[in-house]
Write a protein that binds this DNA or RNA. Structure first.
Length: 565
RNA sequence: CGGGGUGUAGCGCAGUUUGGUUAGCGCGCAGCGUUUGGGACGCUGAGGUCGGAGGUUCAAAUCCUCUCACCCCGACCA
């Protein structure tokens, strides 16, 4: 490709709206163009990268035994109502009405559609197992699209669905996918990490995410310093150090004027934060709920949501809190009887906590559970944190940030059961098909690749997903020898199957080199009168500082070798 | 949805507080010339509904009201 013909121009300046590096670079290299919040178009360069990622994924899916198909983007809302997942997805579903006022959704995922289709085509255990997938645009009306391609409302996903006769079969399919995913990330040049995850709105039991580690990632995960345990923070089991037992003392009210936060309370009363109780108000599907946890620990709302089996969980508003009659800032589970109270396990060890008094500007010392208050349920609703003990081996836990670039789920039978996808076993007995689903967001993987592979000059593409292999960069191209050498090399390299971006512009060396670095093409080939004096050209890898002169006769072979590595 | 912010040329910005002539600057773009191993220079030129609507005023990018879009922080997730 000649740069002079390429649609899309590089930009010197960082677009004001872009904060994340991948977002900035995607815009500066003209790989994407924003159409609306969380909606982007791809320009040729970006689309090439996406296609490379797509082909790697397709190849690995096929190798794992997957069959590619393509399903409709439009889906009847009724199908979602049958599984109840219209509720779970809630406002995230893009819905529309047709001319007959039939409600349709733009597919955010395809469990319903594929299961319905599978139910018509699978009757016997002999038809199973099945691995079916597609690579297709998905729509989710995200509450907050952000960071360029990291979180968008329209995105390209590879979604594979597995259908098995039993849990054993599901485990095998799941493992196949797990390994295929690892191969995909490796082939893309992106080391990934497998972490345990919550299954969220998709549903199901076991679930793992694939993380690409970057400090700017939006997900935090916990991992063990010794063993292989790792989990998304929202999923990670939290094992808090137990507090020493003490003799329970009599309750005692203290005035705490103007004290509303745990930090203030702790310093005002000179009590460590882990000797206080924190109370947080939520509304779960319309029901007011109180969560109680030790003052030094954060509540994990994903766990809380799962325990409450609710669809929507949000913090209660001030009005709602007032209406219920608890006093924000001095709230307390003491004496509360008609509201559901969920408490974290952390309140069961230690004694003589400081808690609110449900009176303005007043707290209570020496509060003890269960002596002083009752709860409806004790559970792990705590956010795991660095420094805690590993639930598997007891070693110290650490945390890192990353970008979730893949997520796999053991769905089980809850969708097939509801949609009537059954098979008959060898004994003639009917069973629901056991399902799994496996997703990769291609756009996000692209963004993550940049997030992980860049320097202050621009992108450093891993060879396998680079838009082009070679940046052909003639300097002083009005020099006839430079021009003819460049043209010939361009033709030769393309004939050899190398993908060449030919900077045929009449620009200064600085402009060309800077664009080469910005675009991040893995190999740069410079031709100038200076190199031609030595009957050679200069070859430089984007990932390295050094360059080397290569005799003209050896260039093609040399570059072919570099691209193979 | 709650909190914070920004909308002026393709991009980055100034001007808005304190209303006042033809709305500026840099980059980029077009033409000509000189240049060229890390974002060259000169000259000439094109390019604007100042996000939108309404209002106040002799006069609005600037003040008021409403509205839209986008970005950032939280709930969501590939």
């Amino acid at each position: 490709m000649r740069i002079s013909q390429l649609f899309g121009k590089t930009q010197r300046e960082i677009p004001a709206e872009a904060e994340m590096v991948s977002h900035q670079l995607l815009l500066r290299t003209a790989m994407i163009h924003q159409v609306a919040a969380g909606v982007y178009s791809y320009l040729p360069l970006g689309w090439r990268v996406l296609k490379k990622i797509e082909n790697i994924i397709r190849d690995e899916m096929n190798k794992a035994g997957g069959q590619e198909l393509n399903m409709s983007v439009l889906q009847p809302l009724e199908l979602w109502q049958e599984t109840g997942r219209d509720q779970a997805f809630g406002k995230g579903l893009f819905t529309l009405s047709d001319r007959r006022d039939h409600k349709l959704v733009l597919g955010p995922t395809h469990e319903e559609v594929i299961t319905e289709m599978v139910s018509r085509n699978v009757q016997s255990y002999r038809d199973l197992p099945l691995l079916l997938y597609q690579i297709q645009t998905k729509f989710r009306d995200e509450p907050r699209p952000r960071a360029g391609l990291i979180r968008v409302r329209e995105f390209i996903m590879k979604d594979l669905y597995s259908f098995d006769v039993d849990g054993n079969g599901l485990d095998q399919s799941y493992n196949k996918m797990l390994q295929a995913y690892q191969k995909i990330y490796n082939r893309c040049g992106l080391p990934s990490l497998l972490v345990e995850a919550d299954s969220g709105a998709i549903g199901g039991k076991d679930s793992h995410e694939f993380m690409i580690i970057t400090e700017t990632g939006e997900d935090e995960f916990i991992y063990c310093s010794e063993c292989d345990y790792s989990a998304n923070t929202e999923k990670a089991q939290s094992i808090k150090a137990k507090l020493a037992d003490e003799k329970p003392l009599p309750r005692e009210e203290v005035a705490t004027p103007g004290i509303a936060t745990i930090e203030d309370l702790s310093s005002f009363l000179r009590v460590p934060q882990n000797k206080t109780l924190k109370v947080v108000f939520y509304v779960a599907d319309g029901e007011f709920v109180i969560a109680v946890i030790r003052g030094d620990i954060e509540i994990n709302e994903v766990k809380l949501k799962n325990i409450l089996h609710c669809v929507e969980l949000r913090l209660a508003t001030e009005d709602e809190v007032n209406k219920v009659g608890v006093i924000a800032g001095s709230a307390s589970p003491i004496g509360v009887s008609d509201i559901k109270i969920i408490a974290d396990e952390s309140i069961t060890s230690g004694a003589n906590f400081v808690a609110g008094a449900n009176k303005p500007d007043t707290h209570v010392k020496n509060v003890n559970y269960p002596r002083d208050f009752k709860v409806d349920l004790i559970a792990d609703i705590a956010r795991a944190a660095t420094g805690e003990r590993c639930p598997k081996c007891g070693s110290k836990l650490l945390s890192r940030r990353g970008i979730e670039v893949g997520h796999i789920f053991k769905l089980g039978t809850f969708i097939s059961g509801k949609l009537g996808a059954f098979f008959t076993d060898p004994d003639g007995v009917s069973h629901p098909i056991v399902m799994g689903c496996y997703g990769i967001g291609l756009d996000r993987l692209l963004a993550a690749a940049i997030e992980q592979n860049h320097d202050d000059k621009g992108i450093i593409w891993p060879l396998a997903i680079a838009p082009y292999h070679v940046y052909l960069c003639p300097l002083y191209s009005e020099n006839p020898q430079v021009a003819t050498t460049a043209e010939k090399l361009y033709t030769d390299l393309e004939a050899q199957g190398l993908e060449v971006l030919f900077d045929d512009r009449n620009e200064s060396p600085g402009v060309k080199f800077n664009d080469a670095d910005l675009l991040g093409i893995p190999i740069r080939v410079t031709i100038s009168p200076r190199t031609l004096e030595n009957n050679s050209i200069e070859v430089k890898k984007r990932s390295e500082k050094k360059s080397q002169l290569v005799p003209l006769g050896e260039v093609t072979a040399k570059l072919k070798g570099l691209v193979k590595d």
